[in-house]
Nucleic acid binder design. Structure first.
Lengths: 151, 151
DNA sequence: GCGCGGAGGTTGCTTATACAACCATACATG
DNA sequence: CATGTATGGTTGTATAAGCAACCTCCGCGC
């Protein structure tokens, strides 16, 4: 049976597609970190956001953290609503009345501290899964694509 | 001002976290492929699923494609409902009454064919963005993590 | 001082994903 | 054959994300 155009397209895509491979990698790593953080009721993306807010310090606003993580503003908006509801982030007025100043609450700070060893365990597991070379390549790639990435 | 434990944790996580980097990479690539496929009203993950079904041929069932792509069965279930609604996938009874045989419809086959050149363009763009070495590393990593991955 | 464009955020809608709980069928074993 | 367990799918719920449309406020140009 000769291969049809659709069959040839399918073979090529299945063998090479970078999008599905990146998605696959993300799912694999996600499961490691989610499992590790579950005892704290903390999701991996929430930890990333808390960390970005902590690091931005006085300058922390939704726009600023969105830029650091390359997240669309609506995504940041909704994530922040959850973090506020959980009592980990406080929103304060800023000089510019359009903007919002963000800060970790005491509970948010404690959560980051408590997450640290769990994150480390996940990070070790992830590094072991990928291998040191691939892990380093992923980090280097991030720097190349977005030098100021911080998450 | 001495760095607090939370600040040190944040610095370490922001500088190294592999989970957030994989997520970031996925978002970047997603935007390339989504943009390319948009004219067909086709999402990248839908293309991945159509391809997996095409390649599985007679053996295509939700469980089989889920294994090939390492997707949770509920994810596959809902994605298939959409693909059916769009008229790209047909569901047929199988010998085992629990299972469902999947097949592309004629429209589904045409969609894969039409997607091929658009996917190629996105793939070229993605490869250029990552660089050949990183692209090859991502592909190699996928093989290592899941030798039968096909998406 | 007025109007307008741009920046900052929110909300509606859709897709992608996982986990858990569930239902139905198949199969093996007593 | 009856029952219990495993397999295959669906559904409820929640998070993660983008796009588009919108509102508000800032600052600039006139």
């Amino acid at each position: 049976m000769p291969r049809t155009p659709a069959a040839r397209a399918s073979d090529e895509i299945a063998a090479e597609c970078l999008a599905s491979r990146a998605r696959f990698l993300d799912r694999r790593l996600a499961s490691i970190y989610e499992r590790a953080l579950r005892p704290l009721g903390l999701r991996r993306t929430q930890l990333t956001l808390l960390v970005a807010i902590a690091r931005a310090g006085e300058r922390a606003t939704p726009t600023v953290v969105g830029r650091a993580l390359q997240l669309e503003k609506s995504t940041v908006s909704r994530e922040l609503a959850r973090l506020q509801a959980l009592g980990w982030v406080r929103v304060e007025p800023s000089p510019d009345a359009r903007a919002q100043r963000l800060a970790l609450t005491a509970a948010g700070t404690r959560t980051v501290e408590a997450a640290h060893p769990l994150w480390r365990k996940a990070q070790r597991e992830a590094r072991a899964l990928l291998g040191d070379r691939a892990a380093a390549a992923l980090a280097a790639l991030t720097v190349r694509l977005h030098p100021r990435f911080a998450g």
